[in-house]
C-alpha cells in the first residue's frame, strides 16, 4: 500500500510547484495509473515515493512506513523503474542482476528461479552474459525491469514502463503487472499511453500543474463528464482547463 498525505514539492526555492497537496491511497492489489501532461508532477511524485526526492511537506507511507523516517524498510519492499534506463553499462546483465540480488538479499534459489523466468519471458537470456553497453535501449529497459522484479517487491513503482519495449515485451509487461497485483502487490505507474491506462488500471489519477484533478475507476472518470467516453477525451478535457 502507498499513502500520500498532503504531499507538496517545489523546485527553485518554491518558484516552481511540482506537486501540490497530494492526498491519495493506493491499496494492495491495485494497479494505479498516473496520467498528466509533460511537467505535471508525475515523475516528481514517483521519485518522492522511492526516496529520490524529499517532499517539502506531507508524508508518504509505503507498506505502513514513512519513507523519510524509515527509508531502508520502505526500500526493502519497493522496486523502481525510472523513465530512462540509466544503468551501469560496464557491467554484464548478470553482474547487474547479482548486484541487485546482493543488496536486496534475495536467496540463491529464488534468484535462480526468477532470473531464469524473467530472462525467458523478456527474451534476454542470450544477452545476459554481455556488457550492458552492448544492449539496445529496449534491452536496457528489460534488464532494469528484470532487476526490479528480482526481489519480488510488494510495491512496484514504474515510470513510463512501456517506453522502448517492443510489442511482445510490452504484452508480457502488462501480464506481469496484472499478476503482481493479483498476488496482492501494489503497482503505481505513470504513462502517456491512454489505451494502456484505460485497459489495465483499476484506478486512474490525472495530475495537472501539480494537483490531482481527477481520480477514480474508468466509470467514475466517465461520470465526471457525460459527453466524453474515452480516457483520451476525458484527459484532454480535464487538462485543458
Amino acid at each position: 500500500m502507498i499513502e500520500y498525505r498532503q504531499v507538496s514539492k517545489s523546485y527553485n526555492k518554491g518558484a516552481i510547484k511540482a506537486v501540490s497537496d497530494l492526498t491519495l491511497t493506493v491499496p494492495p492489489g491495485e494497479i494505479f495509473g498516473f496520467l498528466g501532461p509533460n511537467g505535471a508532477g508525475k515523475t516528481t511524485t514517483l521519485k518522492m515515493t522511492v526516496g529520490l526526492l524529499r517532499p517539502d511537506a506531507g508524508t508518504i507511507q509505503v507498506d505502513g512506513r514513512d519513507i523519510t523516517r524509515e527509508p531502508l524498510a520502505c526500500k526493502a519492499v519497493t522496486s523502481y523503474v525510472p523513465d530512462t534506463p540509466a544503468v551501469y553499462d560496464r557491467l554484464t546483465g548478470l553482474e547487474y542482476l547479482n548486484f541487485i540480488g546482493d543488496v536486496y538479499g534475495v536467496a540463491r534459489q529464488d534468484r535462480l528461479e526468477r532470473i531464469d523466468k524473467w530472462l525467458q519471458i523478456f527474451d534476454l537470456a542470450s544477452a545476459v552474459g554481455n556488457s550492458i553497453q552492448s544492449y539496445s535501449q529496449g534491452m536496457k529497459q528489460k534488464i532494469v525491469l528484470i532487476a526490479a522484479l528480482l526481489p519480488a517487491p510488494r510495491v512496484l513503482i514504474l515510470d513510463e514502463p512501456m517506453v522502448g519495449l517492443d510489442a511482445r515485451a510490452a504484452h508480457h509487461m502488462k501480464e506481469m503487472m496484472r499478476e503482481h497485483c493479483d498476488r496482492g502487490g501494489t503497482l503505481f505507474f505513470s504513462t502517456h499511453i491512454m489505451e494502456v491506462a484505460e485497459r489495465l488500471c483499476d484506478r486512474i489519477g490525472i495530475i495537472h500543474k501539480g494537483r490531482l484533478i481527477a481520480c477514480g475507476t474508468m466509470e467514475e472518470l466517465r461520470a465526471l463528464d457525460r459527453r466524453e467516453q474515452t480516457l483520451e477525451n476525458i484527459f484532454l478535457e480535464l487538462t485543458d482547463r
Binding site: V103, R108, L112
Partner: peptide, 23 residues
Amino acid sequence: KRILSREQIERGVSSGRRPVRAI
C-alpha cells in the same frame, strides 16, 4: 556475443545479502 548456458548462469548467480561487498 557470449551466450551463457543455464549451468553458467547458475554458477554465476551469487547468494545472500552482502551489501558492502556488492558496493
